[in-house]
């Protein structure tokens, strides 16, 4: 019998749902708190807690990534792999990889100090979008409308002594409807596609800031771009996010690594957790 281990740091709707689904399908599931784990250079595969395959569901990017390195070192299969996590957890790397693989994506500019960020914004002109390269739920994603907002943003970044706050990610503001699209990809299958409409007085469409989900039709064009994006980052269980540019059509702006699907599962008929279980079972024997 296949044994699947779910590693988490905070148990959300999604982890519980997958855990229950694995058991309902007659497989063995274990939940392991990533915060409690200890590894050493001698750690080996014989640790039975981890079963045959591990589903990495840790929310903290750094913790999840480093745990995955340790688990992979022990020879255990982890979904998603460390290389996928590395790419998806970092918006700068994601943008580069998407572009390199011919996936349509917004034009994005990077700067590596306050001075060059200031110069960069002057050159690009306003409005523009700034994002932290690591992080999510729409946190720290702002529209910069003029130079005074640019200076405010630079000030607040300087107050933060995190090394990532010295890396600037500027993106063209996409002219789009008040929604974006989230597609959940599992292996080579798209199991759900939803529109996320932003709430009133909010520009970001994240569910975490009040975004409302509705089912979105999966057109063949959308399908092709989403699978291309998922393959570009290395594949696995992913959430591909796109915007609809009024002129250029679909643009992929990010690929999520431990995808949340509470919003999507409320409006989609497809069994997202079930498809994840099937995929894990399949991957455990590869």
């Amino acid at each position: 019998m296949v044994r699947i281990c779910i590693i988490y740091d905070k148990l959300r709707f999604e982890e519980k749902k997958i855990y229950n689904d694995i058991q309902q399908k007659g497989f063995e599931a274990t939940l392991v708190d990533g915060k409690s784990l200890i590894f050493d250079t001698e750690s080996s595969k014989s640790d039975s807690r981890f079963g045959d395959i591990i589903l990495q569901r840790v929310i903290s990017y750094n913790r999840g990534l480093h745990l995955t390195y340790c688990l992979e070192q022990m020879g255990l299969p982890v979904v998603n792999s460390s290389s996928v996590s590395e790419i998806c957890g970092n918006k700068l790397i994601t943008s580069l990889i998407l572009k390199k693989n011919g996936v349509p994506t917004p034009k994005t500019t990077f700067a590596f100090s306050t001075e060059s960020a200031r110069e960069c914004m002057k050159k690009l002109g306003y409005p523009l979008v700034v994002k932290p390269i690591i992080g999510s739920w729409g946190r720290g994603v702002y529209q910069i409308k003029d130079q005074s907002m640019a200076e405010m943003m630079l000030d607040s970044r300087q107050e933060n002594d995190n090394s990532f706050s010295r890396i600037y990610y500027f993106q063209e503001l996409i002219d789009r409807p008040s929604r974006d699209i989230r597609c959940i990809v599992i292996g080579d299958q798209i199991v759900a596609s939803v529109f996320r409409y932003s709430s009133e007085n909010e520009w970001r469409t994240n569910v975490a800031v009040g975004g409302r989900t509705e089912m979105a039709p999966l057109t063949s064009e959308l399908k092709e771009i989403v699978l291309k994006a998922s393959n570009a980052v290395g594949g696995g269980i992913l959430g591909v996010d796109l915007m609809e540019d009024k002129e250029r059509g679909y643009l992929v702006h990010e690929v999520n690594n431990t995808v949340e699907f509470r919003g999507a599962s409320a409006v989609c008929k497809s069994d997202i957790a079930g498809a994840m279980t099937d995929y894990l079972v399949k991957m455990s024997s590869k």
Binding site: K10, K35, I59, S60, Y61, N62, G89, P132, I134, G135, S136, W137, R139, N162, F164, A208, G239, N256, N257, T258, V259, E260
Partner: peptide, 11 residues
């Protein structure tokens, strides 16, 4: 008490 959500959280 749960740990706080830091810089690198979320998907």
């Amino acid at each position: 008490e749960a740990e706080s959500v830091g810089e690198d959280w979320g998907q």
